[in-house]
Amino acid sequence: MAFCATCRAVQPLAAIDHFARLGLRPGFDLDDAVIERAYVDRQQDLHPDRFVTRRAQERRYSAEQSMALNEAFEVLRDPLSRAEYLLELAGHGVDRHGETIDDPELLAEALESREALADAGSPADVATLMAATARLADACRADLSARIAAPDWTGAARATRRLRYLAKLDDEARRRSLAFGAIRT
């Protein structure tokens, strides 16, 4: 797609989705290694480093192709943004900038865990919290996978919001833990 089939000259960017860009079947359950392999294989052929001695136009096409691959990789390699992107493709896009949580159940859970994090007085407390969060995230990803496969887009959107909140919680816990110097030697 990115190359002409007969002459192997790099082509201008086509409007295709991130999965097609990496030659992957759209879906939530994708192995990290598979995504990475697909991405690296394509960069091998399209990266601007392969076109340094070529004419400006071909260099530009290569840069555009390489940028598109990077964007696709960035979006698809993280399960959360992959889910958000799948929802977007299905026409159920969630507003990524919307910070408010309107799901009362999730709101209660969020308040509770944030309080727990604020109360964590030692690196060990934070570590316990992080382990719990990781377990919840695993369960949430499994739920999300099932809903996307169904497909139950409303349920998938709810699970995605929950997964995003869990990622944020994990981030905050990590920062807290760094502040304790727990990860430092």
Binding site: A63, M67, E71, E74
Partner: peptide, 9 residues
């Protein structure tokens, strides 16, 4: 963000 693969747009 930092640590984003380049080239990028």
């Amino acid at each position: 963000p930092r640590n984003a693969p380049i080239p990028l747009a």
